[in-house]
Computed example of a mutant assay.
Amino acid sequence: MEIFTPRKLKFKAWNQEEKLLMRLNSIDCNRGELFKKNHILLQFTGMLDKQEEEIYEMDILLKGNVKYLVRWDEVNTGWCYSLASVPENYKPLLAKEAAEFIRLKSYFED
């Protein structure tokens, strides 16, 4: 019985200088912390939307005409979503719920 299956850790990054969302060829690591100079790293949540698009941290999701924001919840240590206009009120994001949304764009592309 296998108790551990490694998962892929995927990232996109917002290039702060070029104002572009991009996939990276490499990420630097210092003492276990990942970083890329002048970039904001955005982690893949492991979930897919209704159209089977990957959902990343700080993505804006659409359900009906309502926009939601995906982010990491430090307190409950899990992915969550909230109304894009009211980020303080958030709920855990589960795979079943994620499949009901459509990924619109990244928060940084707004």
Score class of each variant (00 low, 15 high):
1 M>T: 11
1 M>S: 11
1 M>P: 07
2 E>R: 15
2 E>F: 14
2 E>G: 06
2 E>S: 14
3 I>P: 01
6 P>R: 08
6 P>K: 09
6 P>W: 11
7 R>D: 03
7 R>M: 06
9 L>E: 08
10 K>P: 00
10 K>L: 13
11 F>N: 00
11 F>Q: 00
12 K>G: 00
13 A>D: 07
14 W>P: 02
15 N>R: 09
15 N>W: 09
16 Q>A: 03
16 Q>W: 04
17 E>I: 15
17 E>L: 15
18 E>A: 15
18 E>G: 00
18 E>V: 06
19 K>P: 02
19 K>R: 13
19 K>G: 01
19 K>M: 07
19 K>H: 14
20 L>Y: 05
20 L>I: 08
20 L>Q: 15
22 M>Y: 03
22 M>D: 05
23 R>Y: 09
23 R>V: 09
23 R>G: 07
24 L>F: 11
24 L>I: 14
25 N>A: 07
26 S>M: 05
26 S>H: 13
26 S>C: 04
27 I>D: 04
27 I>H: 06
27 I>A: 04
27 I>Q: 04
27 I>G: 05
27 I>R: 07
28 D>A: 13
29 C>Q: 11
29 C>R: 12
30 N>M: 05
30 N>R: 13
31 R>T: 06
32 G>C: 03
33 E>P: 00
33 E>S: 10
33 E>D: 05
35 F>V: 01
35 F>Q: 02
36 K>Y: 10
37 K>E: 12
37 K>T: 12
42 L>Y: 14
43 Q>N: 10
43 Q>E: 15
43 Q>L: 12
43 Q>F: 14
43 Q>W: 10
44 F>L: 03
44 F>H: 15
45 T>E: 03
46 G>Q: 09
46 G>Y: 11
49 D>W: 03
50 K>S: 08
51 Q>N: 14
52 E>P: 00
52 E>G: 00
53 E>A: 09
53 E>D: 13
54 E>S: 14
55 I>P: 04
55 I>W: 09
55 I>R: 04
56 Y>P: 04
56 Y>L: 04
57 E>P: 05
57 E>W: 12
62 L>N: 09
63 K>C: 06
63 K>G: 00
64 G>A: 04
64 G>W: 10
65 N>E: 13
66 V>W: 02
67 K>Q: 14
68 Y>F: 15
69 L>I: 13
70 V>Q: 02
73 D>I: 08
73 D>Y: 15
74 E>C: 06
75 V>M: 08
76 N>Q: 07
77 T>R: 14
78 G>P: 01
78 G>Q: 14
80 C>D: 02
80 C>E: 03
81 Y>Q: 01
82 S>P: 09
83 L>S: 12
83 L>T: 06
83 L>D: 11
84 A>P: 01
86 V>W: 03
88 E>N: 02
88 E>F: 01
89 N>P: 00
90 Y>D: 02
91 K>Q: 11
91 K>S: 10
92 P>W: 05
92 P>G: 02
92 P>K: 10
93 L>K: 08
94 L>A: 02
95 A>Q: 13
95 A>T: 09
96 K>L: 05
96 K>T: 12
98 A>V: 03
99 A>Y: 05
100 E>W: 04
101 F>L: 01
101 F>T: 03
101 F>E: 01
101 F>H: 04
104 L>E: 15
104 L>C: 10
106 S>C: 15
106 S>T: 11
107 Y>C: 06
107 Y>R: 07
107 Y>P: 01
108 F>R: 08
109 E>C: 11
109 E>Y: 12
110 D>G: 14
